[in-house]
Design a protein around this nucleic acid. Structure first.
Lengths: 135, 135
DNA sequence: GTGACTGTCCTATGACAATAGGACAGTCGG
DNA sequence: CCGACTGTCCTATTGTCATAGGACAGTCAC
């Protein structure tokens, strides 16, 4: 699991961590019961305060994604239920809407936008395939 | 120009305004010399504080996108260089890629993703139409 | 038991976003 | 001139994010 923090995005660091870990959990990037990186080393690696990572983990536990055992560590919950269809749609809607608003202001019309979306889908699928071929 | 604020995105409101207006300015959505909405009415419409809009406008003037004349208003600068087609595509690609990656993590397949994109496009176009009908 | 690790709790501080509202000066139509 | 508008400046307050560092309790290998 590669965690990537963008300090210039304006989005709070701890929320970036929450989203990335939650997505990884929901898509099998993390396996059930698998331990997450410890707070202090992860904070050092990402160059953020340990309290910031702790806040992200606390939020994840609050959401029922992980289970934390003081003295041992944090683990992906057994009962980690993948997002429902509507929950996934809600998250995706937010992402898509941002792109749609940008397209509107950039005066990119519907057809050009859809063409670009398809192109990016193809590009992404190729990238995924290359990666799986190498594995 | 339809301005869209997402209070839950974590991204500062004034920066959302800056981005959207800059995109619109560079893509012909706003014409050179055209006045921008006045601070107070726009703040009221978006339901944010007038200081927040003022901050966005100040940032835009700082970036050389607009010119503000105290007592008169804010206007799109003459020398505002438009984005090329490829520049716009580059910005949009970034936005779209984020949605594509999210779809992958959420295990939403290509067809479902495209369907959702079209639905959000329709939804947005309705919203734009409603606004122009009211004006 | 000791030491090294784990997560947790606490206070304090600084930076920033956003709010609220008062006050001021410039512009312009009447 | 007057009133309504424009942007600007100011202080104060609230809330959040992130930082820093101290302290504590649980776990585990040795």
């Amino acid at each position: 699991m590669l965690l990537q923090i963008d300090f210039k995005s304006g989005k709070p660091v701890y929320l970036q961590l929450v989203d990335q870990i939650r997505y990884a959990a929901a898509s099998g990037g993390l396996r059930t019961g698998e331990p997450l990186p410890s707070i202090r080393p992860l904070a050092e690696e990402l160059r953020v305060n340990r309290n910031t990572v702790a806040k992200a983990y606390a939020e994840l536990e609050n959401q029922g994604v992980i289970e934390t055992i003081p003295g041992k560590g944090c683990f992906l919950k057994e009962s980690n239920s993948p997002f429902t269809k509507s929950a996934r749609a809600k998250i995706l809607t937010k992402e898509i809407d941002e792109a749609v608003v940008a397209a509107h202001h950039l005066q990119v019309d519907r057809d050009a936008f859809l063409a670009l979306v398809k192109e990016r889908l193809d590009s992404f699928e190729r990238k995924v395939k290359e990666k799986s071929d190498n594995d």
